[in-house]
Design a protein around this nucleic acid. Structure first.
Lengths: 110, 110
DNA sequence: GCGCTATATATCGTCGTACAACATATAGCT
DNA sequence: AGCTATATGTTGTACGACGATATATAGCGC
């Protein structure tokens, strides 16, 4: 599986995690994921924006337009209370999943 | 992301890993994944069989029918040399991916 | 002025894949 | 005869990833 495939399931977890410490806009999330993962995870904008809309629609995020002179408008997203609850659950299920995979795949030989 | 979504990217890694120690047939792989992950990862047959065909088509697996009296025929898959090479690479990229996610998501609070 | 890059958001069309549902076949248990 | 377990397979739907493309603003080099 390519690194593209690998990130499929974890995209939401990454977004929610990054928003935990404060509002971020789409492009910023994109760049943060790339730099924090040292390039291992890269987000295509054609996936990111629709994903943000979905999360907002589910009530986990709340977006708000911020306009500044001499700048393209930005949409800042913040975690809702429900979003925080979901994040907690997602973190737990992620670590459970990783543990389960480790039991099947065996220890790392990296 | 549901545990269903989570496993999307790792399905191939799981199959390849299980076949590392010897030939297995589809249903057996299904059951082994379920039991080794203690129920955390479950495979739908409608995903498993097409996946096995794909892997075989790519030359990573080789299947062979085994018929026994009083039993439904089984198709046993074994890892090819190419499959072993791919498995090695997949294992490495999986652990890199997990490390990258951990840097973004933070430590486990499970 | 022009091309390039970076910042920032957005959509369209294609393609792959997961899975519910259904189908088939064998055997044992009740 | 009906249920469960074993075992493989297909069809149809639906969702999501991503390449390509578009729009808008600003700065830099030439």
């Amino acid at each position: 599986m390519s690194s593209t495939d690998l990130k499929k399931g974890s995209a939401e977890l990454l977004i929610l995690s990054l928003l935990e410490r404060g509002p971020r806009h789409g492009y910023e999330l994109c760049k943060r994921i790339e730099s924090r993962s040292r390039g291992a995870v890269r987000f295509n904008v054609a996936s990111l924006y629709p994903l943000l809309y979905r999360l907002e629609k589910r009530g986990w995020l709340q977006g708000r337009w911020v306009e500044k002179a001499g700048q393209r408008r930005r949409r800042y997203y913040r975690l809702t209370t429900e979003g925080r609850t979901v994040l907690k659950a997602r973190r737990r299920s992620w670590s459970e999943f990783v543990a389960a995979v480790r039991r099947i795949v065996g220890p790392d030989y990296a």
